[in-house]
Write a protein that binds this DNA or RNA. Structure first.
Lengths: 225, 225
DNA sequence: CTCGATGTTATACGGTTGTATAAACTTTTG
DNA sequence: CAAAAGTTTATACAACCGTATAACATCGAG
């Protein structure tokens, strides 16, 4: 029985070592990576992983929980940020590279972990934009939740799409690659977010007319055109 | 030897039938779907597919080519459109559902087929926005190529991200799902594209000042800080 | 009618996967 | 020191994968 302090510590570190190895392999090679690859990366045999986690699914769940914990804790440091800002700041720290890539893969896969992460980011963006509206920095929206969902899915999806264009990126390349991508999208993002793309308000007005009252806005006066 | 006309026709239709079956299975179940599943969906055995295409890789390549052909031909009907518009118009036609889902999966996977499709869309968007700028509809950009790349990757990536949140969508649900997603993002897209999000030009101006002259401007003076 | 080419299936082989089991090794404990 | 508990490996098994091979079925050509 493990009673001594060193025993407990070594057991925990072994579990943690295997889990971290799994996170890295999952992040780099995707969630179809074999248990044997994960074990080899940790310098052990596949049976040890089964012995510690029972099944690959359980291992995956522990990885999800750990990555979620790392993600939220490394985000709580500063103030409220947009998900893109959070990711950008994490991309600056190479230590967070595996966790970050794991998060992106989770979201792209669309499983339960990815969905909860995404909903988390959307909620955060709603709060972030509300603060911005209150302080006069952000323009109010006719449907703040839809806008937050749109901003998160497009920015995150765009990042994912550009990442998937890089063939087999290893752990060392994640940070620089993310920073390069974020560098390249900074100008278009700022242009779009401050000036828009369309010169005329026609299309928006026509859509608002077609769709009727915008959600949330109790528009009693029929002020057309 | 196949000399008669009927022989050639039947052979071609068999190949086409297998190929179309493969496209559907790849579209719905992803590119990890087994050859046996594809064969079962076509009502044949796995050996027949190997006999006709040699290997799974070859089958995949023929599917890529066929889908690319369908995509470009079903797009050439109208005038120049943004990729999102093209996808939206295709989503209205349930017949295009497998091809459309296959295209989206290809792009998400990031293989050669997906990369060429994406580059194709970016080029098209550059031309599309150039026409818009010329006719006064679209606001000029400081870096038109970067903006086109940004618009394509974000809109397409956002679509992909929202699609991956729908668990195991079958062929009949693709059309309605895509239409629902596009409906939900229409208002935020129009808001963002006509009004932007930020109230002040500060952030853009500060970035332009920080980065120096926008690309295309040959900045010879070493203007530090 | 026979022959041969072609469409199709049945079967099998080597590889990889997740996982179960038991043995060997290491460390702690009584 | 020896017994026990925990750690790690070696091995095996069943399932599935892509693919190769040979046999069977079908049908037109000479």
């Amino acid at each position: 029985m493990r009673t001594t302090r060193t025993d407990v510590a070594s057991e925990l570190t072994t579990r943690a070592r295997l889990r971290n190895s799994a996170v890295e392999i999952f992040a780099v090679h995707g969630f179809d990576a074999s248990v044997r690859d994960i074990a080899a990366h940790a310098g052990v045999t596949a049976g040890l992983i089964t012995h510690h986690f029972g099944s690959k699914q359980k291992l995956r769940e522990e990885c999800d929980a750990e990555v979620l914990r790392q993600y939220t804790s490394s985000k709580r440091e500063g103030m409220a940020m947009s998900p893109t800002q959070s990711i950008a700041s994490m991309a600056a720290n190479d230590e967070f590279a595996p966790m970050l890539l794991y998060v992106l893969r989770s979201v792209r896969e669309g499983g339960p972990a990815g969905v909860s992460l995404l909903e988390n980011m959307i909620d955060e963006t709603v709060r972030f934009t509300e603060e911005g509206v209150a302080s006069g920095i952000v323009r109010p929206s006719r449907d703040p939740l839809a806008r937050a969902r749109y901003m998160v899915t497009t920015s995150l999806g765009g990042l994912l799409l550009q990442l998937s264009l890089v063939p087999e990126l290893n752990l060392a390349e994640i940070g620089p690659t993310l920073r390069r991508i974020i560098d390249e999208i900074t100008l278009p993002t700022l242009e779009l977010y401050t000036e828009g793309v369309l010169m005329e308000k026609r299309y928006l007005d026509e859509y608002l007319l077609y769709i009727g009252d915008p959600p949330g806005g109790t528009d009693t006066t029929t002020s057309t055109s």
